[in-house]
C-alpha cells in the first residue's frame, strides 16, 4: 500500500533523506525510528504530499506522490507532530469543516464526524473550542482529522509526543485497532518500547539513511549481540563480587552500582547456572540473578551512532 523507492530530499547541502526505500502492506503498522533530524518527518511529509522529493518517488496505493498527489490525498490521512487549531471554532465544527473539505455530504458527513468523535473519545467535548484543548486532546483531534475521510493509509508523525501515560496507552490501542481494520499505518515515535509493542515492521533511520528494516524480532536477531546482559543483586560485597567476576569470568561492561552488579558475557543457560553456583560457593549472598536479551532500545542504540546533521 505504501512504497518508498529510492527517496532523496536535499535542502541545499543538507541531505535530509538519502535513498530511503521500504514498503508497508495493508493492515501493517510500520514504526519509523530515528534520532531527531534523522529524516523521519521529511519522508513523512513527502508521503503526505506536503513536500516533493529531490529524487526518487513514493506511492500510495500505486499512485505517485509526485505526479498524482490529488489521488494520494483521498487515500491518505496525515497527522503531523503539531496541531494548530482555528480560532473561534469548536471540535465539532473543526471536524465538520475537514469532512466537507473531503467532499463528504449530508448524512455521510454527520456519520463521519460522529464516528471519529466516538473513536477518539472527543464526543463529550464537541462544543469545546479547539484553541483551549490540552495536548492530549489536541493529539486526539489531530488523529480524528486524519481519520475523517476514512483513509486506507495513515501517516502519524510522533503521535504520542507529550501525552501522559494513560493517553499513550489509549493511543496505542487506537493505532492497533486501525491496523486491525485493515489500514496501513506508518508511525514515528521516540518511545521505542511503545513501538516495539504495536509495530509489525520497524525501520531505523539516521542521517537520512535507512539503516535497518524488518520485524522487531528480525532486527533484533540481525543486530543481536550474542552476549547476554546479566544483572546480579547481592546483600553486600558488590565491589568484591565485581573483582571476583573480573578474575574468574570473561565479562564485558562490568558496572557495580550499590548492591547491583551488571555485565555482559557470551553464555548458555547451563553456564549461567554454573556461574551462579560458583558465586554462592564463593560466599557471595546473591539475592537476584537475571539475564535478559537486548531490547529494541538496545538494538537502536547499537544500530545508530547518535549522529545528527
Amino acid at each position: 500500500m505504501i512504497e518508498l523507492q529510492g527517496l532523496h530530499r536535499y535542502f541545499g547541502t543538507t541531505r535530509a533523506v538519502e535513498g530511503v526505500s521500504f514498503a508497508v502492506a495493508p493492515g501493517q503498522v510500520f514504526g519509523y525510528i530515528g534520532p531527531n533530524g534523522a529524516g523521519k518527518t521529511t519522508s513523512m511529509r513527502i508521503l503526505a504530499t506536503l513536500d516533493a522529493p529531490t529524487a526518487g518517488d513514493a506511492t500510495v496505493d500505486g499512485f505517485s506522490v509526485v505526479n498524482d498527489p490529488d489521488r494520494v490525498r483521498h487515500r491518505l490521512g496525515f497527522m503531523p507532530d503539531f496541531l494548530v487549531a482555528y480560532p473561534n471554532v469548536n471540535i465539532q465544527e473543526y471536524l465538520d469543516f475537514f469532512a466537507r473539505a473531503y467532499r463528504l455530504r449530508g448524512k455521510e458527513r454527520l456519520r463521519a464526524v460522529n464516528r471519529v468523535m466516538g473513536f477518539t473519545g472527543l464526543d463529550k467535548l464537541a462544543e469545546k473550542p479547539t484553541t483551549g484543548l490540552s495536548k492530549g486532546m489536541k493529539q486526539r483531534l489531530a488523529l480524528g482529522r486524519a481519520l475523517i475521510h476514512d483513509p486506507a493509509v495513515l501517516v502519524l508523525d510522533e503521535p504520542a509526543a507529550g501525552l501522559d501515560p494513560r493517553a499513550r496507552i489509549e493511543l496505542r490501542g487506537m493505532i492497533r485497532q486501525l491496523a486491525n481494520d485493515g489500514k496501513t499505518v506508518l508511525v514515528s515515535s521516540h518511545i521505542l518500547t511503545e513501538l516495539a509493542e504495536i509495530c509489525d515492521v520497524v525501520g531505523i533511520i539516521e542521517r537520512g539513511r535507512l539503516l535497518a528494516v524488518g520485524t522487531v524480532d528480525e532486527i533484533q536477531r540481525r543486530h543481536q549481540d550474542p552476549r547476554n546482559l546479566v544483572e546480579i543483586h547481592v546483600l553486600d560485597g558488590a565491589g568484591s563480587l565485581g573483582t571476583w567476576l573480573a578474575e574468574h569470568q570473561e565479562v564485558d561492561g562490568l558496572v557495580v552500582d550499590g548492591r547491583r552488579v551488571q555485565f555482559s558475557h557470551r553464555s548458555m543457560p547451563e553456564q549461567d547456572a554454573a556461574l551462579l553456583r560458583a558465586m554462592i560457593e564463593a560466599g557471595f549472598q546473591v539475592v537476584a540473578f537475571g539475564t535478559r536479551r537486548q531490547s529494541l532500545e538496545d538494538v537502536f542504540m547499537q544500530v545508530t551512532k547518535g549522529l545528527v546533521q
Binding site: T49, L50, R73, H74, L76, F78, P80, Y86, A101
Partner: peptide
C-alpha cells in the same frame, strides 16, 4: 504562518 494551510492543502479541496 500558522501551518494550518498544510492541512488544508492535503484535503480534496
Amino acid at each position: 504562518e500558522e501551518r494550518t494551510y498544510e492541512m488544508l492543502s492535503i484535503t480534496a479541496l
